[in-house]
Amino acid sequence: MKRAVRVGTDEKLVLTANRLLDGVIVWRDRLGQWRPHIGVAEKLDAEQVAPVLELAQARAQADGVVGVYEVAVKDVEPPEPVTVRERIRAYGPTVHPEFAVETVQ
């Protein structure tokens, strides 16, 4: 699942994972908490990300998450993923509008 993430000039990175117990997609906020809305995700610069990612991966079991990786987002508020795949993860399947994940906090 790990793909090389290219970061454009006006883009940032956020960290994501799935919650171990129920599989729910979560995003890492400024306090290092994993939360189900991308709106609260901490935006990181490309240079910043490596140590944060490493730490988050090392803590994954203790934090109850699995498959931690980084996602490129547009540097807007709330952050918006660049790829279709990550937009679908962030907002829910496009074919079931009733399962949409709201993006506000």
């Binding site: 799935n18 599989g23 399947p93």
Partner: peptide, 9 residues
């Protein structure tokens, strides 16, 4: 038969 997919298991 248990996968971890995009949104959930």
């Amino acid at each position: 038969g248990l996968y971890l997919q995009l949104h959930a298991y």
